[in-house]
Simulated scan of single mutants.
Amino acid sequence: MSELPSFITRLYPHRSNYLPLRFGRMHYVDEGTGRPVLLLHGNPTWSFLYRKVMAGLAGAGLRVVAPDLIGLGLSDKPRELSAHTLRRHGESLLEFVQALDLKDVVLGVQDWGGPIGAWMAARAGGRVTGLVVMNTSLLAPVRFRTTAFHRFSHLPLVSDVAFRLFNFPLPILGRTQGDPASISGDVARAYAWPLRHVRDRAAPLALARMVPNHPEHPTVAELTEGEAWARSFAGPVELVWGVKDPILGRALRRHREALPRARVTETAAGHFLQEEVPGDVVAALRRVADAR
């Protein structure tokens, strides 16, 4: 991976670490000492998404670990769409957690980080003991009503051209926000930079197509397993939600019902709430980390 350009390092002053895994080399940030906080992003972002949260957790007596999913960020990028399944991403994350021997983990999840993290936690033998959930879906679908974005991802040829040639949806991330300016300028450039080469753009399309659109979709089994873990989880839980998210804003209701013990923080942020309300995310992570 090329050295990061200065417009990124000014915003993201973190040392890169790499871990070889079965399905590719995973990039991650690992800073601080203490109870581990594992921060998981989704599609089409990378650990850059958590830079404000990581800054807010600095000096809090916590070990902050933020990996890039295989196919995104500075991690290896398989070129085949078939390389991306929920199970394969979950297995990579589980291998990562075991290799770093992370225990008593506070898990913070957003977007695809939610289902991937929940599946990992279900297989991790009690390593996850705290949970903060942000604009994701830990739950298997009931009605299989996908968004326009996800329906578009299944259109033959057209979606391949948009995702592969035009780096969709990177140019329009700001439209998912409460404040569109929260992802603009150098911030928008930083999200797009790891996917600047056409050959590296398989993951955003593949992850979009991983969203189930019918009961027999191959992702349903892993979502069901992750949901069972989340519903039975006995540790401290918080929900921090951007209600202006056009993709998952309304998913808060189902998560309130599934996680009735969770403390809930509603915000006016959009999908990538780490950009707009990092303080609320930091506060939730610290409360969960302090709970015993």
Rank of each mutant, 00 (worst) to 15 (best):
P246I: 08
L205F: 11
R88Q: 15
T267F: 10
T176C: 13
R25K: 07
V220W: 05
V281S: 04
G174T: 05
R35W: 07
D280E: 15
S184G: 11
W112M: 12
F233W: 10
P204H: 08
S159K: 05
A188S: 12
G56S: 07
L170M: 13
M26N: 05
G279F: 08
R263T: 15
P13A: 11
A192M: 07
P236L: 09
A124V: 08
M210N: 05
E80V: 09
E238F: 06
I116E: 08
D160F: 14
Y12G: 06
S16C: 08
R164K: 13
R254Q: 14
T219Y: 03
L207M: 15
S182G: 06
R127M: 05
P13S: 10
W112D: 10
I172K: 00
A192K: 09
H217S: 04
L100D: 07
A289L: 04
P115K: 09
L155G: 02
L107I: 12
A208I: 08
R79H: 14
P212T: 14
R143I: 10
P236C: 03
V237D: 03
H271Y: 12
M210K: 00
G24F: 03
E266V: 08
T265Y: 07
G56C: 06
E222H: 14
D179F: 02
A58V: 08
D68E: 05
V53H: 01
S137Q: 13
H41A: 14
G108A: 15
V161S: 04
A228M: 05
V237L: 00
A284G: 08
T265E: 11
I183V: 14
L19V: 03
L207R: 11
R123E: 10
E95F: 12
F144C: 06
T176P: 02
P78M: 09
V37K: 00
L100P: 00
A202N: 02
R123L: 09
L39C: 15
R15F: 11
R79W: 08
G71M: 01
A192L: 13
G59T: 04
R209P: 02
S137T: 15
D104V: 06
R88C: 13
L74D: 05
R25P: 00
L252P: 00
P67G: 03
A124D: 10
G270W: 06
W241V: 04
V187R: 07
R123P: 01
W46Y: 09
D76A: 01
V133Y: 03
E275C: 03
A258E: 01
L21F: 06
G113L: 00
A162G: 06
A122I: 02
V109Y: 02
I70E: 00
E222F: 14
A162R: 02
I183R: 00
L259D: 11
H84V: 15
T129G: 01
D245N: 01
L94I: 10
L40C: 03
D104E: 13
E275G: 01
R209E: 08
T224L: 12
L19E: 03
G61W: 06
Q177Y: 02
V277L: 12
S16P: 01
F144V: 05
A122N: 04
H150R: 07
L155A: 12
N213K: 10
G117W: 06
T45C: 11
V106T: 15
G90I: 11
G270L: 06
